[in-house]
Amino acid sequence: MTTYAEGRTRLLRNLTYAAAILFVLALLMDFFYVGPEAQQGEAQRIFYVHLGSFLGAFIGFTAAVVAGIRYLRSRDPKWDTLGLSSVEVGLGLSTITIVTGMFWAKPIWNVYWTWEPRLTSVTIMWLAYAAYMMLRAGIEDPERRRRFAAVYGIVAFSSVLFTVIIIRVRPDTIHPAIGPTQASPEGEFEITPRIRDTLFFNLFTFGVIAVTLIWYRIRLENLFLHIERRKMDLLSQEG
């Protein structure tokens, strides 16, 4: 094994164990440490996974912007690998955000889905990154694919910003928010110390999970590229 340093592999393995343990602890906190919320009751417990997975997705999409800028500056393919990996992980985690939101909405709003500003904007965000994957699939020249993906990864981030700020500026949203919004200037629900602990622990956990997943995806992509190169070498030898 010359492709990957042994130390890196060990570090990633430890990170994986840490992520798994943190996730179990976070779930235990969601179910046993924090009590049922005053207004929403038991359904509120899913909120920690909901916000945590969104943070993970946010990390992914932000990493894609950074990777895009770095790629356009340096033209080093490793930044494109980071961009692809973080968008994929971000897409997966934002799917979790949407699905957990739906399960929360059924008991609270009595429907799985409603056309509410933030639900609309998060769907737009998801579609933008699905379009990123389509763009990659549609362009054959590898150099051009990397370049266009970097550009679109930057452009698509506008939908993430839109999702983050819409809840603060639109007065007709019913999506709960921490802190002041146009809809309710003094904040939606009261944050007890236990809610705060659980929330921060979950956010940290999902941050670690996102980084770990992105790392795995980078290694997978490197293996793909490695196999691709080996194939090319083999073909050129035969020819």
Binding site: I124, L127, M134, G138, I139, D141, V155, S159, F162
Partner: peptide, 19 residues
């Protein structure tokens, strides 16, 4: 530059301009 360019443009453009 894409293979299915007529279908790709709406897919790329709509999510960005929807806001």
């Amino acid at each position: 530059h894409a293979r299915a360019r007529e279908t790709l443009l709406p897919i790329l453009l709509l999510p960005v301009v929807l806001p």
